[in-house]
Amino acid sequence: MKRINYNILFVLLTTTILLSCKEDKVKKLQNEIEEKIKTGLNDPDSYEFNHFYIDSIEHTSTKELITENLEKIKELQKLNDDKNSEEKIKNLESQNLIFGRMNKYKFTGNFSFRGNNKFGAKILADYRFEADSTYTLMYLMDNTGDTIYTDTEIVLKETDKLIKEIEESTKDKN
């Protein structure tokens, strides 16, 4: 009976530690975003936090493209049109490989806040962001799509990582 209690205690303790580490990283990301936003405000003292949401970056559109490609592959396999079908299937599989790995190590989310515009009126602004696997800010875009902040060093590292993975996977297939 005591053995079961120790196992439960161990699982609860481990879970608590892991969740608290993630919460610290997310809070650090939120603070980094706030810092970037406040420096560009007309009235930084009017800043009021509103909402912060982070999600894995598996975009619905990317999932939809992968699903569409899989359906096309099934249709082409039924046709058995030899070379033409095989080449199209290879292209669709390559696209799915790239789509699947493209944003594997990133997170995306929304960040909204209130502040005074240049006329002194209170506004609600909604920004989108991307962060890498260590919850370090990569991109910050406003609601019109303009980029407010880009960390080019991290973007280049993530792109290099993606290219290496794709090269390794194509070597494995050959």
Results as ranks from 00 to 15, higher is better:
residue 86 E to H: 00
residue 86 E to C: 03
residue 86 E to G: 06
residue 87 E to K: 06
residue 87 E to W: 05
residue 87 E to C: 07
residue 88 K to R: 12
residue 88 K to W: 04
residue 88 K to E: 07
residue 88 K to A: 06
residue 89 I to A: 05
residue 89 I to K: 01
residue 89 I to W: 03
residue 89 I to L: 06
residue 90 K to W: 03
residue 90 K to V: 06
residue 90 K to Y: 11
residue 90 K to S: 13
residue 90 K to I: 09
residue 91 N to H: 11
residue 91 N to Y: 10
residue 91 N to L: 13
residue 92 L to D: 00
residue 92 L to K: 01
residue 92 L to A: 03
residue 92 L to Q: 08
residue 93 E to H: 00
residue 93 E to A: 01
residue 94 S to R: 04
residue 94 S to G: 11
residue 95 Q to C: 09
residue 95 Q to A: 11
residue 96 N to I: 00
residue 96 N to G: 04
residue 96 N to S: 04
residue 96 N to M: 04
residue 97 L to S: 13
residue 97 L to F: 02
residue 98 I to M: 06
residue 98 I to G: 00
residue 99 F to E: 10
residue 99 F to I: 03
residue 99 F to Q: 01
residue 100 G to E: 14
residue 100 G to V: 04
residue 100 G to Y: 09
residue 101 R to S: 15
residue 101 R to C: 12
residue 102 M to H: 02
residue 102 M to T: 03
residue 104 K to T: 12
residue 105 Y to P: 01
residue 105 Y to F: 15
residue 105 Y to R: 08
residue 106 K to M: 14
residue 106 K to E: 13
residue 106 K to T: 14
residue 107 F to H: 15
residue 107 F to Q: 12
residue 107 F to D: 03
residue 108 T to K: 13
residue 108 T to M: 14
residue 108 T to H: 13
residue 108 T to W: 15
residue 108 T to S: 10
residue 109 G to W: 02
residue 110 N to P: 02
residue 110 N to I: 08
residue 111 F to V: 00
residue 111 F to L: 08
residue 112 S to W: 04
residue 112 S to M: 07
residue 112 S to N: 09
residue 113 F to L: 01
residue 113 F to C: 05
residue 113 F to I: 00
residue 113 F to G: 08
residue 113 F to N: 08
residue 113 F to H: 11
residue 114 R to C: 07
residue 114 R to Q: 07
residue 114 R to L: 08
residue 115 G to V: 12
residue 115 G to S: 15
residue 116 N to V: 06
residue 116 N to K: 15
residue 116 N to H: 02
residue 117 N to K: 08
residue 117 N to A: 00
residue 117 N to D: 14
residue 117 N to P: 05
residue 117 N to C: 02
residue 117 N to L: 06
residue 118 K to R: 12
residue 118 K to Q: 12
residue 119 F to E: 11
residue 119 F to R: 15
residue 119 F to T: 11
residue 120 G to D: 02
residue 120 G to V: 03
residue 121 A to Q: 13
residue 122 K to F: 02
residue 123 I to F: 04
residue 123 I to P: 04
residue 123 I to V: 13
residue 124 L to S: 10
residue 125 A to H: 09
residue 125 A to S: 01
residue 127 Y to M: 01
residue 127 Y to P: 02
residue 127 Y to A: 03
residue 129 F to A: 04
residue 129 F to G: 05
residue 129 F to S: 00
residue 129 F to I: 06
residue 130 E to P: 09
residue 131 A to C: 08
residue 132 D to Q: 03
residue 132 D to K: 07
residue 133 S to Y: 15
residue 133 S to L: 08
residue 133 S to N: 14
residue 134 T to K: 15
residue 134 T to Q: 14
residue 135 Y to D: 04
residue 136 T to W: 04
residue 136 T to F: 05
residue 137 L to D: 07
residue 137 L to V: 12
residue 137 L to P: 01
residue 138 M to Y: 11
residue 138 M to V: 15
residue 138 M to R: 10
residue 139 Y to I: 10
residue 140 L to P: 00
residue 140 L to K: 09
residue 140 L to G: 06
residue 141 M to Q: 13
residue 141 M to V: 14
residue 141 M to Y: 11
residue 141 M to W: 10
residue 141 M to G: 06
residue 142 D to K: 05
residue 143 N to F: 11
residue 143 N to G: 10
residue 143 N to E: 15
